[in-house]
Write a protein that binds this DNA or RNA. Structure first.
Lengths: 395, 395
DNA sequence: TTATTTTTGCTTGATCATCGCCATAAGTGC
DNA sequence: GCACTTATGGCGATGATCAAGCAAAAATAA
C-alpha cells in the first residue's frame, strides 16, 4: 500500500487531503479530521507540508463559535499554472489557467494547422512565452501543457494518427517537441475529447455519462463514461461524422462513402448547399450569421441538420444511455435552432427509460470548452493521476 | 492512505499481492519482491497471512537455479466458491464456480421468470442448496452470489426497474431476499451485462473495449469500456433492440414504435416470419435448427438479420470504437451464418481506423457466458472492489 | 478587565507496518 | 562429502501514525 501513496510523487501522503480541499470549499481542521479520520496531530503535519509547498492557503475570515476562531484552508489555485491550447483547422485558442481552470490569459488567432507541425508548434511556443511574460509567470510554475488537435491522436504517445486535415502531422512527437522547450509534461488529445472533458469538469461535474457533440466544419463527439474519457481501441471513438443517415444516401462525402452525417449536416455541408442555392456562405460562421439574421433557407437547413444529427444521436442514446448531451462547435452558436431539431428526434425515437432524465443542452463554455478541457487534462494528470488518463506521456 | 487499504476488509494490505498472484504475473518470492518493491521480510509476513487464510497455496515444483529452490505460490481458486445464476425469460442456468470461474457444478432448467420473484427465487434457493450438498460445500465457503436478470436492473440496489417481461419483479429487493438466506453479498445485473463481463474476463481479457451482442428472443448488448462495465445513467445502456433501422419502417414493434431492430432481426421476429411463410418455427431455437438443417428461407432470413444488426453495429463501431464485438445468444448458435452478414456490413460501413483491428467473433463461452459473468461479477467484487462495480449492494 | 470557550501547537508513549541484517535451510556442482 | 549458491525465517531498529494531555492563543460573554 505504501508504494501506491508514494507514487503520487511530491505531494506524498497528503494527496488524499488535497483531493478533499480541491473542491473549492474552505475546510477547518475539525472538518478535515472528520472527513479523513486522521488524528489531529497527523493532520497538522500534513497541512504543514501542503502549506510549505503553497498547495493550500489559510483563508482570511475566521469562523468563531464562541471561542478561538478556526482557520479554514482552501486549495491554492494559484500555486501552479497550466498552459492550454485548442488547435482547430484554421483558428487556435491558447490560454494560461490556474489550477482551478480559471483563465488568466487568453488568445484566439487565425492559425492554419495545415502548414505542418513545426511551424504551428513554433508559433504556439512563442505565444506561450509571450503570454507567460504578460502574466508574469515563470517556467517553473508550469505544471503541464495540454494540447487539443483536430484529428485522431494516440493519447498515450501524444502523436497524431493519420489525421485527414493535418498534413505532415502523422506521428509527429508533439509531447517531446514541446516538453524539451518548457520542461513540463505535455498531454495531447483529440479536440472533441478535451471539449468533453472541459464541459464535464467545469460545467457538469455531476453527470457520470456525458456526450459532447461538436458541430462545426465537421461533426464529432467526445465521450465520458463513468467520469472517464472513453477514447476507444484506436483512439477513434466519437467519430460520428461518417455514420450513414437514412435520408440522404445519394450525397457523396469527402471520405468517399455515401450519405455520411457530415456530408449532410455539418457546417461545411450547409454552407455549400446555401452557396449552391445562391446565398453567400463560405463557412460555418456564415451559416450561423445567416440563421441569426433570420434567413429562411438557413433556418430551415439548420433545423433539418438538427433532425439528421438527432437521428444518429437517438441510436447512440439507446446504446450509451448518457445523462447529458452537450452540443458545441461553431454551428451550436446558432443556439436553440439546432437543439430543437435534436430534441424533437431524440425524445421521439429513443427509449423512455433512457430519455426521462436526459438533458440536451448547448455548451456552457462555448468556444472555451477546448482550452479549458486541455487545462483539465493536465491538472488532473498532475494532481490526480489515473483519473483522466491511465498512461503517462512525458515528464 | 490507511483507510483506503483497510476498506479492503479481510484481505487487508495483501490485496495488491493477491491481484498479482491471481493474474499469474509472479510466482516466487523474488519475483514478487521485484514487482511490489516490498522488503523480503514484509513480503513474507503478507504471504503468511494469505497462506493462513488459504487464499494462496505453495506449489509442488521447486524452481532451482543453482541454490535452494524457490517456492512458487499460486492463487488458490478453491478457497471460496461463487454461486451464479443466469435467469432468462423461460430458461435458467445455475452454477457453482471456484474463484477462477471454473464451473464446479451446473444446471440448466426450464424456469419461467414470469411467475414472479418469490416463486423464482425460492426455486433458485433450493437449487443452490441442492448443488451445495452435491459438491459438498458449506455456506461459509460462499464468497457471494451473482444473478443475471432479463431486464433493466439498478445495479447499485440490485432491483429490477420496470422490466417488460418480468411481471411482479419491479423494485423487488433481490439482494436482501437472497442475502438473508445465504448470508453472503448478492449482486444483480442485467443478463447482457454479465454476459459481456463473462466473455471479457474468461475469454478476452486483453480487449479493453468490448461489445457483447446478444441475439435471442430480443436483441441487446453489454458494453465494456476501459475494462469497466458501462451501465449508463439509468442502467439502460446497451438497449439496441429498439434502434430504428432504415430498411423496414413499416413493421410495428412490441414497444409500439416502427422499424425497431428487434422487430426485424430478433429470434422472435424471424420465427414469426417463418411461421407466416408456412415454415413451422415457435422460437429462436427452432430458427437455429432450421438454419442448421439448411432451410433456404431460414438461411436467407438469418443472413438478412445479420445485415440489419450489422447496420446498427456499424454506427456503434464508429461511435464507440471497440476492439472486439462478441456475438452470443440463442441465434448466435447458428454460427457463421449471422457473423457473415454482420462483418459484411460493418467492414464496409465503418471507418477503416476503427475496423482495421476490430475482431468480430462468436461467443467462446456460448450459453455459459451468463453464469460465468455472474461469477466474475461476484469474485471481482470480493477480491478487487471497484474494478467492476463502484457501489456496494449488501454485506 | 476577567472568565469562559474553542482552536491550535507541541510533547509523550504506544502501536503497527516495514526494513535491513543475520542465521539457517535446502538445493547444485565439484 | 564439501563448498557454493540461493531461498527463507526471525529479530531488533526505524518511522509514521495515533490517542491523550497540556499550555498558549484568540476570540466571546459577563
Amino acid at each position: 500500500m505504501r508504494m501506491l501513496s508514494e507514487a503520487n510523487g511530491s505531494i506524498a501522503g497528503a494527496g488524499a487531503l488535497l483531493k478533499i480541499l480541491r473542491d473549492g470549499q474552505a475546510r477547518t481542521r475539525a472538518e478535515l479530521v472528520q472527513l479523513t479520520g486522521l488524528a489531529r496531530s497527523t493532520l497538522g503535519q500534513r497541512l504543514d507540508a501542503l502549506l510549505s509547498q503553497q498547495w493550500i492557503v489559510p483563508t482570511e475570515e475566521a469562523i468563531s463559535s464562541g471561542g478561538r476562531p478556526a482557520v479554514a484552508f482552501t486549495f491554492n489555485r494559484g500555486a501552479r499554472i497550466a498552459l492550454a491550447a485548442d488547435l482547430g483547422a484554421t483558428h487556435a485558442r491558447v490560454a494560461i489557467t490556474d489550477l482551478g481552470t480559471e483563465v488568466l490569459a487568453e488568445r484566439a488567432d487565425e492559425v492554419p494547422v495545415d502548414r505542418g507541425p513545426v511551424e504551428t508548434l513554433t508559433w504556439l511556443q512563442h505565444t506561450f512565452e509571450e503570454m507567460l511574460a504578460e502574466t508574469g509567470h515563470t517556467r517553473d510554475q508550469i505544471c503541464g501543457i495540454g494540447i487539443g488537435l483536430p484529428g485522431p491522436v494516440e493519447h498515450s504517445s501524444g502523436r497524431p494518427v493519420n489525421p485527414p486535415i493535418m498534413p505532415g502531422w502523422d506521428g509527429f512527437p508533439v509531447p517531446e517537441w514541446l516538453g524539451e522547450r518548457f520542461g513540463a509534461p505535455v498531454l495531447v488529445d483529440n479536440d472533441v475529447n478535451i471539449m468533453a472533458l472541459g464541459e464535464h469538469w467545469a460545467a457538469r461535474p455531476e453527470a457520470d455519462h456525458l456526450i459532447f457533440v461538436k458541430i462545426g466544419t465537421g461533426i464529432g463527439c467526445g465521450i465520458i463514461s463513468d467520469r472517464h474519457l472513453h477514447r476507444g481501441a484506436q483512439g477513434a471513438a466519437g467519430d460520428i461524422g461518417h455514420i450513414q443517415v437514412a435520408s440522404a444516401t445519394d450525397i457523396v462525402c469527402r471520405c468517399g462513402n455515401l450519405g455520411c452525417l457530415e456530408a449532410v449536416a455539418s457546417g461545411a455541408a450547409m454552407s455549400a448547399r446555401l452557396s449552391a442555392a445562391g446565398v453567400e456562405a463560405a463557412d460555418s460562421r456564415d451559416v450561423v450569421r445567416l440563421v441569426r439574421s433570420g434567413n429562411t433557407q438557413a433556418v430551415q437547413l439548420i433545423r433539418q441538420a438538427g433532425r439528421e444529427i438527432g437521428d444518429v444521436l437517438a441510436s447512440i442514446v439507446n446504446f450509451f444511455n448518457p445523462s447529458v448531451i452537450v452540443v458545441g462547435g461553431d454551428i451550436a452558436e446558432a443556439g436553440e435552432q439546432i437543439l430543437a431539431g435534436l430534441r424533437e428526434v431524440i425524445y421521439s425515437r429513443s427509449l423512455p427509460l433512457a430519455t426521462q432524465h436526459l438533458t440536451i443542452t448547448a455548451s456552457e463554455l462555448s468556444d472555451r470548452a477546448g482550452v479549458i478541457g486541455a487545462a483539465v487534462m493536465v491538472i488532473e494528470h498532475v494532481l490526480a493521476p489515473g483519473t483522466v488518463d491511465r498512461s503517462v506521456t512525458r515528464d
